[in-house]
């Protein structure tokens, strides 16, 4: 499973495909207080990425991949 919710943190792990977008959206809507940890993402479909971008303030850890981190207008080092 690439989208995991545990202890108030939504974790994205490994390859996140387009199908994960719906799961992630439901979690984001239901768990309004949950933060997002994307540090273990290895591949991100744009359907998932655009959801993350839309709630960027909730992201606690950006993807480790520098090019993916850049999408969010910040470098991963700045997280």
């Amino acid at each position: 499973m690439s989208v995991v919710h545990e202890n108030g943190v939504i974790r994205l792990v490994g390859r996140c495909a387009a199908d994960d977008a719906e799961t992630l959206l439901n979690l984001l809507v239901d768990e309004t207080d949950a933060t997002i940890d994307a540090s273990d993402v290895s591949k991100l479909h744009l359907a998932v990425a655009q959801l993350l971008l839309a709630c960027a303030p909730r992201i606690r850890n950006l993807p480790a991949d520098p090019m993916l981190a850049q999408l969010f207008g910040r470098r991963s080092a700045e997280r």
């Binding site: 387009a18 977008a21 959206l25 990425a49 655009q50 971008l53 839309a54 090019m67 850049q70």
Partner: peptide, 26 residues
């Protein structure tokens, strides 16, 4: 590739409640 940015295709990202997960808005 040196730099890549993702921006909302409209003026802002949709509210989560209005999000269609399978429509590209980027």
């Amino acid at each position: 590739l040196i730099l890549l940015r993702a921006l909302p295709s409209e003026s802002a990202w949709p509210e989560l409640g209005d999000f269609e997960p399978f429509q590209c808005v980027t």
